[in-house]
């Protein structure tokens, strides 16, 4: 519990300078990498400009695969996290098994399972149950990849939510309940707003990791940035140039995400 600090609102010039410096250096790094890419593109349009044009749609696929998955992960993680701290042993058990099983299987293996095994399972099921639409199910790689990423990262996010909720003192829930709020009202209005501030940094980490791990979907027929890069080298035979550019493009994405995360952290902090 914070003690009463009369200087809580006071301005500390040194601290502001330090903060400003931190922001600056983050953007300098982004700027450097972007500048490097631009120099490469303009000084050697062949192959760099060609490859960027070729990979542009893949870049877009990577971005929206990450964003859609992450939005779903936030929801799945909340449900999983609440399940993990539920008083009901059945709900808690299901949530615990989910988290433990998913954490114990490599992400690549999970994605392969969703792409190759799951559609086959669905078709078999459709045949036995005589549901024609299911029996003729045609695999949609993107949907399966998003499901795979969501289920896997939902498990990690459940633990992030659980830790955040448990970091809020028990008295907060008691005070809310003693005012007549239901468990879910107390969660929504009292516990989660506080927990969210605590877990914002780890949530940001999960987003950055998810962005990087989304490159694994290139193995299961999704034409993301990585896959488009591999396709480009396959016809142009220039792995050094292509994979350097691929790495730089991912770096721009992750650095920009990191800036976004630290910006969100700062505005939620100053709100107090």
């Amino acid at each position: 519990m914070e003690t009463s600090d009369k200087n809580a609102g006071a301005v500390n010039p040194e601290k502001i300078l330090k903060e400003a410096h931190k922001v600056e250096s983050g953007w300098i790094l982004v700027g450097t990498v972007v500048a490097l890419i631009l120099i490469m593109v303009f000084t050697k349009p062949d192959p760099y400009q060609n490859m960027i044009v070729f990979m542009a749609d893949g870049l877009w696929v990577t971005i929206y695969t990450t964003l859609i998955s992450f939005s779903l992960v936030l929801v799945v993680g909340l449900i999983g996290g609440l399940g993990r701290i539920s008083k009901n042993p059945i709900i808690r058990g299901i949530a615990t098994v989910y988290v433990e099983v998913i954490r114990g299987i490599p992400l690549l293996v999970q994605l392969i399972f969703w792409y190759f095994a799951m559609p086959a399972i669905l078709r078999d099921l459709g045949t036995t149950l005589n549901i024609e639409s299911l029996a003729n199910y045609k695999t949609n790689p993107l949907v399966m990849a998003i499901i795979g990423l969501t289920i896997a990262y939902g498990a990690y996010m459940s633990e992030v939510y659980r830790a955040g909720i448990q970091s809020i003192p028990k008295g907060q829930m008691e005070a809310a309940r003693s005012l007549g709020m239901t468990y879910f009202q107390a969660m929504r209005y009292v516990i989660l707003p506080q927990a969210f501030r605590v877990i914002l940094p780890p949530i940001g980490n999960e987003l950055i990791t998810l962005l990087k791990d989304s490159s694994l979907v290139s193995v299961v027929a999704v034409a993301d940035l990585t896959r488009r890069g591999r396709e480009f080298t396959a016809t142009n035979f220039n792995p050094i140039e292509t994979y350097s550019m691929l790495a730089l493009l991912y770096l721009v994405l992750t650095l920009l995400t990191a800036r976004l995360v630290s910006y969100t952290e700062r505005i939620t902090k100053t709100e107090r």
Binding site: P169, G171, A176
Partner: peptide
Amino acid sequence: VFQQFNLFPH
């Protein structure tokens, strides 16, 4: 009313 006040700090 609690010993630790338990006001909502946010």
